[in-house]
Simulated assay, not measured.
Amino acid sequence: MTVSIRLAGPADAVALTDIYLACRREMNYAPLAHAEAEVRAWFAGTQLPSGGAWLAERNGDIAGFAAASLQDDVLWLDQLYVRAGHRGVGVGGMLLQRLLSPPAPACRLFVFQANLGARRFYETHGFALLSLSDGQDNEECCPDALYQRPPDAKE
């Protein structure tokens, strides 16, 4: 398996949006809060131009992506999605490792409580559950979980 990680650019907007939408459609417990056209415009006009998005290419295909932002000395993992057919082979871990290198400050993320696979993935990679909420603070109004990985966490 050949996987390479690179910074995502404007030309990657369609591919990354396609991955995001496909993954979100699999989450029957968390309906999309925005129409597809709005999501596509956000990726092309805001997400990618702001930087901080990395993509993984596996055997020539864009297999997944991750995006993070720094707020108040905390790295927030805003998104990490891996396309079906590329899961379970280390792509997500490689994306996460890239975002956390060089050693990042504490890293936090929200994940839907019902996304048990993602929760296991983050726990395996050194994240600890900080709190659970009823979802009233997210656009989907779905119960979520706040996780944190301390700067010195080991996988």
Rank of each mutant, 00 (worst) to 15 (best):
M94Q: 15
A128S: 14
G90I: 03
S133Q: 13
S131T: 13
L100M: 12
V89Q: 13
L109A: 09
H125N: 14
V91D: 02
Q136D: 11
Q113R: 14
E139W: 06
H125R: 13
L95G: 02
R98E: 10
P102M: 06
Q136N: 10
G92T: 11
V91N: 07
P102K: 07
F121S: 04
T124V: 09
R98Y: 08
T124C: 09
R119C: 12
E123Q: 13
M94T: 13
G93C: 02
A118H: 01
L130E: 15
Q113N: 13
F112G: 03
Y122N: 01
L132Q: 14
Y122C: 05
S133F: 14
L129N: 01
E123W: 07
L129P: 00
S101Q: 11
V91M: 08
A84N: 12
R87D: 02
N138R: 03
N138G: 02
G92Y: 07
G126Y: 05
D134T: 11
S133C: 13
R83Y: 00
E123P: 01
M94V: 08
E139F: 12
F121C: 05
E139N: 08
F127K: 03
G117I: 03
V82G: 00
F112Q: 08
M94H: 08
N115S: 11
N115P: 06
L116K: 10
R87L: 07
V91I: 09
L109Y: 05
P102Y: 08
F110G: 08
P103Y: 05
R98K: 12
A104P: 04
E139R: 11
P105Q: 03
R120K: 13
G93F: 06
R83P: 00
L99W: 03
G90H: 05
P102I: 08
G92W: 06
Q136K: 13
T124K: 15
L99Y: 04
P103G: 14
G92P: 06
L95R: 01
L96A: 07
T124S: 10
R87E: 10
F112R: 04
A104I: 08
R120P: 02
A118D: 04
P105H: 03
L100D: 10
S133N: 15
G135Y: 07
T124A: 12
V89I: 14
A84R: 15
N115I: 04
G117K: 04
P105L: 01
D134F: 10
F112N: 10
V111Y: 00
G92V: 07
L95A: 04
A128P: 03
G90F: 04
A104V: 07
F110L: 12
G93V: 01
G88I: 05
F110S: 05
A118R: 02
L100P: 02
H86Y: 14
L100H: 05
V111K: 00
P105N: 03
G90S: 06
S131I: 04
R119H: 09
V82Y: 00
V91L: 08
L130V: 11
H86I: 10
N115A: 12
L130D: 11
A118I: 04
H125Q: 09
Y122F: 15
